[in-house]
């Protein structure tokens, strides 16, 4: 696709408004959540329950985002602490 036609893009945005609005709201929430998680593990590795309790987040949500951040190369798994693994922000990322 070459440079998208501005008028056409505008029309498309209007047509998809409901989806776009929802996606933007999601993005906001996601950014906040990711920021909070990253903040927790930038200095020391932590388990999911610890991240959740210290950042006051739901543990399943924390795990979901930690998994995604690992997949896209921003977080690494470190050691095991009891029954749980710990995660840390990837210094190289």
């Amino acid at each position: 696709m070459g440079k998208p036609d501005k008028e056409a893009m505008k029309a498309l945005r209007k047509q998809r408004k409901a989806y776009i609005d929802r996606a933007q709201q999601e993005m906001k929430k996601q950014r906040k959540l990711i920021k909070a998680i990253k903040e927790q593990i930038k200095d020391e590795p932590k388990t999911v329950p610890r991240i959740a309790s210290e950042a006051k987040l739901q543990a399943d949500q924390v795990l979901l985002y930690v998994a995604a951040l690992r997949k896209y190369g921003q977080v690494v798994e470190v050691d095991k602490d009891g029954d749980y693994f710990t995660y840390k922000l990837d210094a190289e990322a």
Binding site: P49, A59, D60, V62, L63, R70, E77, D83, Y84, F85
Partner: peptide
Amino acid sequence: YQRVIRPSDGKE
């Protein structure tokens, strides 16, 4: 998760 842990809190 590249391993088996449970989805609610990451416990093995």
